[in-house]
Design a protein around this nucleic acid. Sequence first.
DNA 1: ATAATATTTAACCAAATGGTTGAACTTTAT
DNA 2: ATAAAGTTCAACCATTTGGTTAAATATTAT
Lengths: 200, 200
Amino acid sequence: MKKDISTEEKIKQAASKVFVKKGLAGARMQEIADEAGINKAMLHYYYRSKDKLFHSIFMEVVKEFTPKIIGVLNADLPLQKKIERYVEEYIGMLKNDPAIPLFIFNEMKNNPKEFIEKVGIVESGVLDKLNDQLIEEKRVGNIRFISVHEFMINLVSLCVFPFLAKPMFQGIFNASDDEFYKFMEMRKKSIPVFMMAAIS
Amino acid sequence: MKKDISTEEKIKQAASKVFVKKGLAGARMQEIADEAGINKAMLHYYYRSKDKLFHSIFMEVVKEFTPKIIGVLNADLPLQKKIERYVEEYIGMLKNDPAIPLFIFNEMKNNPKEFIEKVGIVESGVLDKLNDQLIEEKRVGNIRFISVHEFMINLVSLCVFPFLAKPMFQGIFNASDDEFYKFMEMRKKSIPVFMMAAIS
DNA sequence: ATAATATTTAACCAAATGGTTGAACTTTAT
DNA sequence: ATAAAGTTCAACCATTTGGTTAAATATTAT
């Protein structure tokens, strides 16, 4: 396996891979150990229990995933550019880790509290700047009225949903992985056009 | 429990409830039996194995879920009315069964083949009528060009994604169940407006 | 060098879990 | 009425699985 990295790092990488793929209930400690190329007892030596290991990995994944997404929202950019960059970055990220959203939503439903406690607080106020921007653009007549809530959930929906529905999409449209990703690449341009038209 | 329905029906209802809530890996046969108020051996008597039971339930859920969604698409309605009815019906359905999409997408990723084989075939050609409609509306200048693929995935994204992200939405915006459903009720009107503006 | 500490492993363990069995009980057919 | 078939259940079984242990090995401190 990976030889030059610490055991703990091996565990993190292996656990992340297995948990994201199979979820908490579907993952096996032995499988994680095999994936890391170490003895199963090491998992308990470093993380005590499966739940603790999962919790640690889940938080790490979320912590690495969310900042990139909300970063652009506070940038000092005109609305259209902001949408373009947001979509570009979000879809770009998901192309590298297409299974992350399902992982997060899936396990969040099983334990909504801890996520809200640890991540929820950070997010409050993060939409203020965008909110002001939407109000200002409406005032000068560039866009019609739309609430930040609605704006954000529509934008995120358009970017993320296809990845959640990837297997279904590929099944119905009989599309290969390549074709799916090509489709998403096109969406980097079509979503901003769609969004801007929708609020104009 | 329910006294006047057959054992098999009790099993179906209980298994559906538990599987949708916990997934294949997270569900326990004993829990299903308890939920149905019957002996665990009955599950095997009627369905042989956990996998068989799950497969049966999964197919039933999908088979009951998808027709309602695609039915409207072939209706003989002007585009705007079609969008309105589609959104209305889809969100209405999801308000009754908010966990279904996550269940389907989640377990479909674990076994994409069987879904594609059993359901995928049915879907082919189902978008033809809508496709013609989009082309015609474009020809007469009511809308700009948009492919059926793009149109459909955008429409479905806007309807379904909020239910997938429900726990996250409620966490970030600190919203109760009531508030979430009120928000979705509003979306029955705002999504068609958003869609029509986006493609006009 | 060597004692102390940290890391790693193979072998084990107890609980959980999917699945089976044989007997009891009900329903249906004759 | 009664034999046959279908249904239900408590007790059991084998395997899987998360977790432990005690000894071995490597690392660090003195």
